[in-house]
Amino acid sequence: MTNAANGAVRTVLADRIRSRGIATDAALVAGGALFTAAMAQLEVPMWPVPITGQTLAVVLAGATLGAGRGTLAMLVYMVAGLAGAPFFADMTGGLHALTIPSFGYVIGFVPAAAVVGWLARRDWDRRFVRAALAFTLASAIPFVTGIPYLAVVLAQLGAPHDIGTVLGFGLWPFVVGGIAKALIAAGVLPLAWKALGRRR
Rank of each mutant, 00 (worst) to 15 (best):
I107E: 02
I107D: 02
I141K: 12
L82M: 09
S139Q: 13
D123K: 15
V129Q: 07
P86T: 12
H96C: 01
G104L: 04
R127T: 12
G104M: 05
I100R: 00
W124I: 10
F143K: 08
P86F: 05
D125G: 12
R130M: 07
G104A: 04
F88E: 01
T145I: 07
A140Y: 07
A155C: 06
A132K: 11
F103M: 00
A114M: 15
P101T: 00
V110L: 12
F87P: 14
L98V: 00
G93T: 12
G94K: 01
R130D: 13
R122K: 14
A83Q: 04
A155L: 03
L133F: 15
V106A: 04
F135M: 14
G108K: 06
G93A: 08
H96G: 01
F88C: 02
A151R: 03
F88H: 02
F87V: 11
A155P: 02
F103R: 02
A114R: 13
W118G: 11
G84L: 05
G108Q: 07
R130Q: 12
L119R: 04
A138Q: 12
T145F: 09
L137M: 09
V144L: 11
P111S: 09
V106L: 05
G108F: 06
A97T: 00
A120P: 11
F87D: 10
D90E: 11
T136F: 06
L82R: 11
R127C: 07
A89M: 04
G94R: 01
R127K: 14
V116H: 11
V144S: 03
A134K: 11
